[in-house]
Nucleic acid binder design. Structure first.
Lengths: 230, 230
DNA sequence: CTTGCAACATGACAATAGTCAAGTTGAAGC
DNA sequence: GCTTCAACTTGACTATTGTCATGTTGCAAG
């Protein structure tokens, strides 16, 4: 079912890229390949984890529903990224739900397969820990941002992460809709709108899902300034 | 150097308790046992990880310094808890700093030892993933709280976590000083004071580091209520 | 083409949290 | 016992964000 192009993407994923080819072949041949429509659920919070998931195309969000129904977006993944590693190997329920936020392609690696390969070659365990560590790290970074930065500063960092060039100025497309960006950054859509307005003052123009940053350094200074001295 | 009592605590830690005794013995005999004074640094952000750390007594905080010097507390660990697993096995720099917030005892397991044992028995990898998953989970929970609850509600949850009994009412000691509690909950000490004041209305009395909760159910309802309908 | 809807923007207001300043208080050191 | 200092509390004020209401816009189904 899998196109060669998809397999190539899978091989480059953080989870698989450092594994010996032989293992990767085994995993790819036993993986389940699926397409999801925008809005489709991939798994639900409290459901038991049976696989590790690798995004091949599109965008997937992980989120938590509080008892009152408020949604907190925990992370958003795209091509080459994987999630569910630590959960799948322990047969514990997912602490979050996953949903496709655009049409997307996802590869599922059954966890029993991963476990049995891990018994043969401990290198696999290290690979899994590597991806897990990346998630841990990104959650830590998010926590720092939420605790130490204003909304507009978080938006500034989000934009800076989109333009990987160290160029003077640049233009980027917002990867998904603003409601999701707002959720991902821990704010309401209205606040995101206002944050964008503020960023006009440091040379950011937003038009639809297209952003123009006139001076990256200026934006970076803004993002890292002490909130109290702004 | 290690007392038997300390070894007993180490054996009960989340990291080691599910491992075969034989491995635990090996790890314990090669571990480094250290005492730290209040305020002493255990490791610094950006430092290369060489060991996994298990707290035997006292309290340790993990925190991040933003470029501007603002401190964001990521987690606080105590007896039986471990940290640094995912980092130690990858020879990558710590994303956070660790500091003793009270006098404490910490056991350090050198990561090369863990890696070599892991090659012999993949079960060790699963154990490490288990602890790592717990951290991941707690970070996710923190993110949800920060995004979906008010300060006073986060304080309420913090108190609820302290009293494990399902009893009607209970009394607990605050485990560390209020400045650190405030940091851990993502607020300023002043806001914590005010949050405590508000909780008086739902039957919480704070005196020094001693808290009296007259009705746990009432507090739980408060913590989980929709912030908008309070 | 038009209707309808969801995403987005904006203004007015309320709630929440941070800042600054001025006290208290309790414990450690002299 | 006294001094001193840091932790803590409280009040007044400000800034930020959420909430509610209203209006615009672009896209898609008919």
């Amino acid at each position: 079912m899998a196109h060669e192009a998809q397999k190539a993407i899978a091989r480059q994923s953080l989870l698989l890229k450092s594994l010996p080819n032989q293992h990767v072949d085994t995993l790819l041949s036993h993986a389940i390949w699926r397409s999801y429509d925008r809005g489709e659920t991939i798994f639900l919070q409290e459901e038991e984890a049976k696989a590790v998931h690798v995004v091949l195309a599109g965008w997937v969000k992980l989120f938590r529903m509080s008892p009152t129904g408020a949604e907190a977006v925990v992370s958003v993944f795209t091509r080459g990224e994987s999630f569910g590693e630590a959960v799948a190997l322990r047969n514990v329920p997912y602490p979050v739900s996953a949903e496709a936020v655009s049409a997307c392609e996802v590869m599922h690696i059954p966890s029993p397969l991963l476990l049995s390969l891990m018994k043969e070659d401990p290198e696999i365990g290290v690979s899994i820990l590597a991806s897990t560590f990346t998630h841990l790290h990104s959650l830590v970074a998010q926590l720092e941002q939420l605790k130490a930065q204003t909304g507009a500063q978080r938006v500034a960092e989000f934009l800076l992460n989109l333009c990987d060039t160290a160029d003077d100025g640049c233009e980027v497309e917002l990867p998904y809709d603003k409601m999701l960006i707002a959720g991902r950054l821990g704010m309401k859509p209205e606040s995101l709108s206002r944050a964008f307005s503020r960023l006009k003052a440091v040379g950011v123009k937003i038009n639809r899902n297209h952003a123009v940053i006139s001076n990256i350094e200026r934006l970076r200074d803004y993002a890292e300034a002490d909130p109290s001295e702004k």
